[in-house]
Design a protein around this nucleic acid. Structure first.
Length: 266
DNA sequence: ATGCCTTCGCCTCGAAGA
């Protein structure tokens, strides 16, 4: 089984790419569950019929223009939770569901963490509040669901090596110590960053700026992550970004990150 | 280079992203 996360930067624009990419991968290395961020669609405008016609189950929590999160799955979804309980937020940044996989229930929490704009700004304060609330929420999810995956755009590069140029990024937004502390607090719950379970090539990123030919020059950041509870981390066989979608015509600025989880029998 | 690109809205530029 493969689980993934992808910030599509408008599902309206990226739906054909998503369907094509899932179909192509299905022939060799199928993605079975994927969390999407920045759908930028209201629930009314969500292309549920197209996804269902292609055989996918889905849940979505969206709004106009900004944010919007979805889970798309080969298997049925249940116990849907929109937003962080007790955290009052108009912005649609969190959706969770239980996936009925052949290996038993898997809980997937899909998150689009606040960008934060600039260290010290109001949006930065909101980002730190969001991260604190997310930590408490994930503690409760972990207590209920042994097999928990938290996939999303965290808008945090966990370490200097997760940036193309630490001299440019260290201390700035996405790379400040309080943000990284917020990320480490999620790991401290008992979650593992799937990327760090394996030896990885240097300069492995998930986002590249549209400007200045960022992708061609590999001037990127690793800010999209899949966090796995202990049972899932123990069964994880590989974890890496798939760069193919970033090479599509009119691509998202993010590319999918995928973790392969072994079945109990294999 | 405080730049570069891409998205959306009611809009032909501004705001936001990261």
């Amino acid at each position: 089984m493969r689980i993934a996360t992808w910030n599509v930067n408008s599902l309206k624009v990226r739906l054909p790419q998503l369907l094509d990419w899932l179909a192509v991968r299905a022939e060799s290395a199928p993605v079975d569950v994927i969390g999407l961020q920045e759908t930028k669609l209201t629930d009314e405008a969500f292309p549920g019929a197209e996804l269902a016609a292609a055989g996918w189950h889905w849940v979505h929590a969206g709004q106009k223009t900004y944010n919007g999160v979805a889970i798309v799955s080969r298997w049925p979804l249940s116990e849907v939770q929109v937003g962080i309980p007790g955290f009052d937020d108009e912005q649609k940044r969190v959706i969770a569901a239980t996936v009925a996989t052949p290996d038993g229930p898997l809980r997937y929490v899909c998150v689009y963490v606040v960008n934060g704009q600039a260290v010290g700004s109001d949006k930065y304060a909101y980002k730190l509040r969001f991260l604190a609330a997310l930590r408490d929420y994930l503690a409760a999810e972990l207590a209920q669901h042994p097999k928990l995956a938290v996939g999303g755009d965290y808008n945090i590069a966990p370490s200097p090596s997760d940036t193309h140029d630490p001299a440019v990024w260290e201390g700035n937004i996405l790379c400040s110590e309080p943000e990284r502390e917020g990320f480490r607090a999620l790991l401290a719950l008992g979650l593992r960053d799937a990327f760090t379970l394996f030896e990885q090539p240097p300069n492995s990123f998930t986002w590249w700026d549209y400007r200045a030919a960022g992708f061609r020059r590999n001037l990127g950041l690793r800010i999209d992550h899949l966090l796995l509870s202990a049972p899932l981390a123990a069964a994880c066989r590989s974890a890496s970004a798939d760069l193919a979608p970033r090479k599509f015509e009119r691509p998202s600025d993010h590319t999918p990150f995928i973790a392969e989880i072994a079945s109990p029998s294999s």
